[in-house]
Design a protein around this nucleic acid. Sequence first.
DNA 1: TGTGTTTATATCGTCATACGATATGCATCC
DNA 2: GGATGCATATCGTATGACGATATAAACACA
Lengths: 147, 147
Amino acid sequence: MLEFRTGLRRFVHWSEQAAAAAGLSPAVHQLLLAVRGSSTPGGPTIGELADSLVVKHHTAVEAVDRAQRAGLVVREGDAQDLRVVRVRLTEAGHARLNDLTAQHLDELARLAPSFAGLWANLDSAGHTGHTGYTGHAEDAEDARAAD
Amino acid sequence: MLEFRTGLRRFVHWSEQAAAAAGLSPAVHQLLLAVRGSSTPGGPTIGELADSLVVKHHTAVEAVDRAQRAGLVVREGDAQDLRVVRVRLTEAGHARLNDLTAQHLDELARLAPSFAGLWANLDSAGHTGHTGYTGHAEDAEDARAAD
DNA sequence: TGTGTTTATATCGTCATACGATATGCATCC
DNA sequence: GGATGCATATCGTATGACGATATAAACACA
């Protein structure tokens, strides 16, 4: 489990470094990914982005602010519902993102095999008596091993 | 890929909520896990912890400071090398951590199946022509799909 | 033994980012 | 056509990460 956590951290950390090297803050990078990954016609709304990034909407607002200031996305008002704002990638945004995506696919391909093994372990660990949370510290040694 | 990222985020976010509910800041929670997970006899050093958490050593120092102030770990000087400090969990630290670990195993067991599927996809995506990073934005559509 | 280099830990100031509380404007529904 | 609710935006605050820097012990070696 510690191994799993550390592996995850290493990937996230690596990803942030790569983004920084391309001149993107981690948050903006994630935002661009979320915008590109959206399947909503006309582009995602702020609320959808917040959901996708698992943050509150005002956090998404700030990320869009920064990305827009950097010229990577644009806000576009929705014609139907004047409350909603749709976010679209600019050409610059696309270009910046494509550079990073290729690198990420490579890195993930490199990591996937080791992670797959860890998942298998976690999966079986989950079926060996830990499915009932008691709130007590009855089996510290067992927990430590699993972790 | 966006799905993968979002899933990861959801897990991390969930984990932070669970830690907060137990009165632990995310950083301290991760620190306790790293201390417990260490196999170094006598307990991990600050440097080992920093490595395990994938942060700079002064970031680990701060986390240990906070955890120590909360009574969850103690610093112990090394007898051999007077420069190094070893970190050990207190009883309170163990107790707090055990509460959380049981929950985490449950949650991971719940998530493992869906993640396993995503890994399989990523694994194959990595072997279909993306192993050479060109630095150009030649195949935006392909990248978007993979992401 | 003395001096320079490396290693481990700690301190300081700063920055990015997330949050809660709150505000504003538009939509929708009796 | 008010009441109610939702999408977006603003403000102040807290956490946590970093680079630069400091201190002290260990080590290397003349």
